[in-house]
Amino acid sequence: MARTSTHMRHAAITVLAWGIALWMFFPILWMVLTGFKSEPDAISTPPHFFFSPTISSYQDVFARENYWHFATNSVVISAMATVVALLVSVPAAYAMAFLPGPRTRMTLLWMLSTRMLPSVGVLVPIYLLARATGLLDSRTGLIVIYMLTNLPITVWMLYTFFREVPVAILEAGRMDGATRWQEVTQVLMPLALPGIASTGLLSLILCWNETFWSLNLTSSIAAPLTTFIASFSSPEGLFFAKLSAASTLAVAPIMVFGWVSQKQLVRGLTFGAVK
């Protein structure tokens, strides 16, 4: 009896999980399919599940815009912003986790609270600052902005991962003669590597998908893939197939990347739970 009901529950959970996964994945699937339709097929109602696939939208997209220019920008900006964010937040999280002061907790909460402010609230000052410093439409400008907006998240995540590392292990390192630098690089970092990796991955994904600042601060030179998509949405009305093709091209790299690093990501995000 108990056995059967356990089986039933397992089956129900499996079905539910698949249901939710498909429901979440459907828009992406639809986008990919639409990219291979002709424009009339794309907007026909009721929608067609079966159609003769064409790559004409992709040809159009490649003909009109230089995809590789945007893709390179996305890669460079996301990667640089993530690297710099990690360089800043590893020492910060170390200090907060292992040398906490009376105000550490407040500082962490305050940092997180800055994420709650809508970006548009600081659009004017940031825009003016970027213009004054000559960082409009420059990769450096976006790298700085992305790095700063992700800092609260990366510091928080690393702080939580570091807190999981038993202090006695670091103390053992100190007793063994490790300098602060060696303690961090040879004892702490290897132990917290899954955590650092998933923090980096998350930052990468957030940078890749960031739209607000890229649209407002870049036009051509430094524009990443989010701008590339946007350029297909407005002016010529609704060309769904082309828009879908462009979107697919924009999200494909990060999706492949996420797929490959999936294991690492899950391991890092459940670091404490599994032990």
């Binding site: 006695a168 292990i169 103390e171 390192g173 004892v187 290897p190």
Partner: peptide
């Protein structure tokens, strides 16, 4: 040299 209650070996 110190021996800790939790051993504090380097797990990696």
């Amino acid at each position: 040299a110190m021996v800790f209650q939790s051993y504090a070996l380097y797990p990696h």
